[in-house]
Computed example of a mutant assay.
Amino acid sequence: MTWASEPLKSNGEPVTSYDVLVYRGGSLAKTVSGVQGTQQQVTGLDTSSTYTFALVAHNNVGASPQGARSNPVTPYGRPGAVSNLSAAPANTTGNGGQVQLSFSPATANGDPVSGYQYSIDGGSSWGSLASDKTVSGLQNGTTYSFLVRAVNSAGPGPSSNRASANPYGQPKTPVANAATDGIRVKMTWNTGGYDNGRPSTVSVTIDGNAVANDGAATVGNGPDEAHSITVKACVQGEPTNCSSKSDSARTASPSASLAQGPRVTSDPQCASNACYYFDITARNFHPNASVFVQCWNNAGGDHVFASFHATTDANGYFNQNSGCYLGHNAINPWSAGWATLDDGRGGTARTNNYTW
């Protein structure tokens, strides 16, 4: 409290000291005597009570009458300590990087708590704590030790107990790929590297069936098959906190091409004419299948003029240049030729047209 000094109205004697009278609720609570100067800090007051103050001046002659009472005032101090602080990882099914703090509020000590501060370096520096008590911007997989304190108009209160937490998030998105390779599909994936602050477990399914997590697999055994892969990474102990990646591919469709093969020498009709075998290449049929090949030309209208069977290898492939032939003669004069193929298991194709 402060006050203004006035000269005495009698005999001119200067004031030598003051008594500060402290009233609580209208009753004298205490007296502070022998005060020098014109201000005094009064301690030991109750922050839940309202006080008024009065002065008595002293000089060498004696004491003055008690002065008028001051305006009422309620004292306050820094807030009390935060208690029961605990910390837990937050946003764990997202990107992580957060810790949720929980604690019992500090006592106000006469002035409302205006906010809370936290420290992660033992109290050397402090930051404002969000209203939801979440601390963000943390590094997943790093253990943090937290302190919290309350703040009001008088300043910050004492630190809380320590509480630690290690933030983490959902595992990183897995890597998985499916690529067509003829009548097969090659699956590749990363077997690990998905941890995001906590260890993760990896599971792999191909076409809905669990497979070993060894990074590669080849599936398929014929044309036009659909195959898929899903790689899932889950936080250990949290089977629903997962990230996943899926991919799919189809095996290739059957195809066939026709080119001019070797010249025919065994047919008398070709002795003076250019007869050549059909050179047929087939790809992506069923493996080890007997393929029925029909040879066509358009002399006198589209028609089959010869047929034969050829067997594919383990990759659905064959090449044959001795099954049928065309040439420039009276029967088939330089006519266009082509072939159709059927492996009896759904694999069919037609070659390009070829004229010679």
Rank of each mutant, 00 (worst) to 15 (best):
S104Y: 08
R263H: 12
S159W: 10
F305C: 12
T218I: 01
N177M: 08
T312Q: 00
P223G: 01
T134P: 09
S160P: 00
G316A: 00
Q41Y: 14
T201W: 05
Q236I: 00
N315D: 06
S246Y: 10
W356R: 00
A90N: 08
N209E: 14
G193F: 04
R184Y: 07
N166S: 15
S153L: 10
A154D: 01
V35W: 08
G215F: 05
S102H: 06
S114H: 05
F305R: 07
T92S: 02
V219Y: 14
Y118M: 14
A163Y: 00
M1L: 15
G344M: 10
P174F: 01
V264Q: 10
A106R: 03
R78D: 12
G141L: 11
A299W: 13
G94N: 03
A106W: 04
S290V: 10
P167I: 03
Y325R: 04
Q40V: 12
T180W: 07
E238V: 02
N241S: 02
P158R: 02
W126F: 14
S266L: 08
A68Y: 14
E13N: 14
S5G: 14
S17H: 15
F285A: 04
A4L: 07
T142C: 10
G344R: 09
G220T: 01
G300C: 15
L101R: 00
A81T: 04
N321M: 06
R250L: 15
N209P: 06
P174M: 02
G237T: 03
Q40N: 11
T281F: 01
P105R: 06
G97W: 04
T180N: 01
S159M: 14
A216I: 09
L21Q: 14
N84H: 13
H328K: 11
T281C: 05
V151D: 02
G110R: 08
N298Y: 02
V235K: 06
T16A: 11
A179H: 03
V204E: 03
A233Q: 01
G215W: 00
T134W: 01
H328P: 04
H303K: 12
L85S: 02
S290K: 11
Q269K: 11
N298L: 04
N288C: 10
P156Y: 11
G344A: 06
G44H: 15
Q41N: 13
D111P: 05
N329I: 03
S86P: 13
P79I: 09
A259V: 04
H286A: 03
A271F: 05
S119W: 13
A4E: 12
M1I: 12
V61A: 10
A81R: 04
P158Q: 12
A349W: 11
S102E: 01
T47I: 11
I229C: 12
A108T: 07
V202S: 09
N319V: 05
G347L: 06
C270Q: 05
F285N: 03
F278K: 03
A256T: 09
K232M: 09
G344H: 08
D195N: 11
S266N: 13
S124F: 15
N329K: 03
Y18F: 13
S153V: 04
A154R: 08
M1N: 12
V99N: 05
A259S: 15
F305A: 00
G347D: 10
L21W: 13
G12M: 09
A349K: 05
W189Q: 03
